[in-house]
Design a binder for these strands. Sequence first.
DNA 1: CTGTTAGCGCATTCAC
DNA 2: GTGAATGCGCTAACAG
Lengths: 355, 355
Amino acid sequence: MAKQIKIKDIAAMAGVSVGTVDRVLHNRGNVSERSLKAIEQVLAETGYKYNIHTSAISLKKEYNIAITTPIAVKGEYWGAVRDGIMHAINEYSDIKLNCTFFFYNQFDIYSCRSSFESILEQSPDAVIIGPTFKSETQRLCKELDDKHIPYVFVDAVIEGTSPVSTYSTDQYACGQLLGRMLDTFTPEDSEFAIMSSQRIGNERSSNSLARKKGFQDYFRSKGMQNRIHETSFSVLDPAESERKVLSFLNENPKIKGMAIMNSRGYILADILRKNGIKEICLISFDLTQNNIKGIKDGTIGAILCQRPELQGFHALKSLIRQLLYNQKEETVNHTMPIDIIVRENLPYYREFFEM
Amino acid sequence: MAKQIKIKDIAAMAGVSVGTVDRVLHNRGNVSERSLKAIEQVLAETGYKYNIHTSAISLKKEYNIAITTPIAVKGEYWGAVRDGIMHAINEYSDIKLNCTFFFYNQFDIYSCRSSFESILEQSPDAVIIGPTFKSETQRLCKELDDKHIPYVFVDAVIEGTSPVSTYSTDQYACGQLLGRMLDTFTPEDSEFAIMSSQRIGNERSSNSLARKKGFQDYFRSKGMQNRIHETSFSVLDPAESERKVLSFLNENPKIKGMAIMNSRGYILADILRKNGIKEICLISFDLTQNNIKGIKDGTIGAILCQRPELQGFHALKSLIRQLLYNQKEETVNHTMPIDIIVRENLPYYREFFEM
DNA sequence: CTGTTAGCGCATTCAC
DNA sequence: GTGAATGCGCTAACAG
């Protein structure tokens, strides 16, 4: 193990003092051309990076970080994102972070707008954004860009912005995977249903749309597009939904696979369970409390997940690096793994998420 | 955000000096009953934990960590474990670690014995063990226990030892999952094959045995145990293996699913590919370079993985905590998630593992 | 037994 | 422009 090199070593090698090295490291100027060259030379040779934790204790600065996502409910998707963020806060407790959450209602653009306004008002040092409304988010990002406030995206990426990094999933791939799973999980001549959940004020999320496209393309590529049916049900009226779903299944008895492009699978699972329908394989997204129940009793065949905790964790970690190393690099897009969870591997997906 | 509490705060609250608090924190003794009580009281109330990084810079101590696993080849299982360990070393670069790897040949008990002897000779401060040979490992652990050297297990747990923590997978559950996947991936009346890889000097690994049991129990619980066939092939003689596998498949034409309890699936994939056999679903373990190839071209239907990088990462992290906080707690067993990887989600499993 | 203090790697202020 | 000096949270040696 080569022992860790320190600022003092760099200074000695470059024939200057630690103060000068520090000025270069944080480009605070007031360094002669000569010293700059010498130090940069040594820095490049050694690949030196100062320690982020030591730096943090020395630095008295506190960082204000604003986090804005749809309302985070424990055990649901955005709750998991928050858990990951909290985990990172904890892990980096030596860095003084003031994190403020600005939750908005993902079905109410006004609530989003007001959250974003609050963020701009408090002028934080960095922002984590879990976006829903495209143009609102673009407007926020433009302001942040103007103020040189770094931000990262979790869950989804909004075009026309310049985040430090993004942590999301390839939703199109999710859809393809969903198609593949449903196809292989069901008998030869099965037909399939895309179930859309309806909700008042529900502008179709772009994630769902990308998933749906991937799903359809999977079957299209197999020449099976005519085996896909589509219907919708209401999130808010269970009785009506049940009637609708049952009659839909009645009319299409060859349907053996049901897909839903969001986390609402548990609503369909309730219907299947209540009516003792066992021969249909239902696949949903997100390891939420409700869906876990379905996996356990077999009403949900599989769940696809996108590591929301990991996204939150890394989002904050990325911002910390940005704030402390302060180097403007190109945007890094991180595409998270898509986990397939069935009854047999469910118990082992609870505890772990870090790195 | 409640601001981070410091030793000085604890000292003030308990009405003593920081020196005394430090003595209590590291139970170095020489503290009056009175002070001890007061400090412990405050410590409990505040839930204070000193910062591990700040502690490390102050501490001049270097830690020698010995790591012993089967030979780590890049792109294979133990290579991934090593990657995770290296990642952790990097993440905790402020803590002075001298990590020495003691690789052994997992098919040669003498090489294992000699590695373990070297470890005991150098008397490290902590050890990471990726075990293979049970009694050898037990002997090593007994010595380590005597010397009060903490150790953790990765990949598998050896009974009769007392590690700080363990990072492994429920192999029985892996087997059950494998059964489930093969069952749902194949047509109704399929039969299945357990393929055992033979190798000279190969004492059956306990991981493989547990997986096999889980696999068999899955089909037993479904009353399908009579649909399972079993055969073996040689790792070292491809031509002979090919002949053997082909004639086996010829004799059992209803076999549509093939299971192997280790990472050698790629050998079977080669045979399937070479002979244009497409209707058989093969499932193997571990995301190795060779297996990835099979997933990509469809000769392998799915791979089950156990996050080797994460195991290595956490193993080292756990030891660091143990060394710096030095509290003897009960052994914590961490059971890793079992990932299901198919062609559609393969590309997203390369980069991420941390936390 | 206890408090004081120097020093760890780093950032920053302030004389020179 | 530059280096010396101080402080960050923490540890450990040292003086009382």
